[in-house]
Write a protein that binds this DNA or RNA. Structure first.
Lengths: 227, 227
DNA sequence: GTCTATACGGCGATAGAC
DNA sequence: GTCTATCGCCGTATAGAC
């Protein structure tokens, strides 16, 4: 896990970051807070302590900078999660993992990343929350970056739930996706709603409950065929 | 249900809309598509076929217009959903409704609204999806407009699940909230992911699966006390 | 009251000079 | 790689027409 808590995800030591990297870091945090339209290149440049034009020099147009931010960590995220899925399937009895084990493999790496001390990763996940719920960009960008992994995940579920209705399988993934990305967003709404009983940034508890919640839901709608 | 599928939600006939209403309608649709920062007052005015300054005249600053959009339908939404919850509790055996019945009462009215022909309501729900996942506005605005209803909903769940861990109850609501609002957003991601097997705008199926999914999840994490 | 035309200061993305 | 210049659009205020 060590290799994913650092900067762009590949370095192992605290090397001084290049300006090019600093731009990506600043953009990541600001886009996560305010969405694509809520941030200006000037704000990003200021936060990265570089000239406005340097962002365009390295990344082109604003939209391309946004894509670069998304792409950077998608690579390492997909690798870590693909590995978790591989392990889950390889260690399953008769090559047929349980629903719980699959959901666990899908969610646990994200829980560990979000609970880690790394602010960059937390900003990235909050940005994914924004993208996933965006009517304009959600369909296209989530598809581009994460569909291969998600398809593998659904394939695994199909093994564990051989009688599942196909539509139910996809809708089940949809509910999981919504629950997960709202957790990414960390809006602090739970804090006031529960008067402090539940805290939206208590990711450890958030994932501990999410895994059995989603597994039970998935089994409920997939076990008996059609709704 | 007839009274909620029309315009602002109160008229019953297709009366010609005032310019003041047209501004709200246009703002609702555009904010739903692009978020608060992705829309300009000029775009709203153009869509409503009024002068730019008229929006400010009626509603003040941009942020106040946004609040007015949110407020308009929140009123009627809360009333319909409170009624559904009342009925659910009143008709329950021994005044103790089942988890399924409570989730059904909470979600069914939204499903009917979203599946209705009314575009205005669909835009409104997409806007709620945006607000709910906004780190900047989500905590504050969802709290302001919907917390009383949500608290009643959680009170009802507490009746049905007397041994539930309090934290689990709130996290369960959180997962429900995420799954629900992603359904509001209608990003069409499911369409390509499932190669047409599941369609994100097929709200009828979306809610038909959501209700048992959430009920099962809620029971799984609440039935046995602590996780 | 309701509405329009116009103006203002400011900041947006980006291209071109260096 | 860096900085400046440009042009257009931003939210908002206001003066006055109906």
């Amino acid at each position: 896990m060590d290799q994913i808590v650092e900067g762009g995800g590949l370095l192992t030591a605290k090397t001084k970051k290049s300006r090019k990297e600093r731009i990506l870091d600043a953009a990541e945090e600001l886009f996560a807070d305010s969405g694509y339209d809520g941030v200006t290149l000037r704000q990003i440049a200021k936060a990265a302590k570089v000239d406005v034009a340097l962002a365009s020099y390295h990344y082109g147009r604003k939209r391309e900078l946004f894509d670069a931010v998304l792409y950077r960590r998608a690579e390492v995220l997909n690798q870590v999660r693909n590995d978790a899925l591989d392990t889950c399937i390889a260690t399953a009895k008769d090559g047929k993992p349980t629903v719980e084990a699959i959901i666990e493999a899908y969610l646990r790496p994200l829980g560990e990343i979000q609970a880690s001390a790394d602010g960059g990763w937390r900003h990235y996940l909050a940005l994914i929350a924004w993208v996933n719920n965006s009517p304009k960009m959600g369909g296209e960008l989530m598809t581009r970056y994460f569909n291969p992994l998600v398809s593998r995940f659904i394939d695994a579920l199909r093994l564990a739930l051989p009688d599942a209705d196909e539509q139910a399988l996809y809708w089940g993934y949809h509910y999981l996706s919504g629950a997960l990305t709202l957790t990414f967003a960390d809006t602090h709404r739970l804090d006031t709603l529960s008067k402090g009983t539940a805290i939206s940034s208590d990711f450890k508890t958030g994932y501990a409950h999410m895994i059995p919640f989603i597994a039970a839901g998935m089994k409920a709608i997939c076990a008996n065929g059609k709704p």
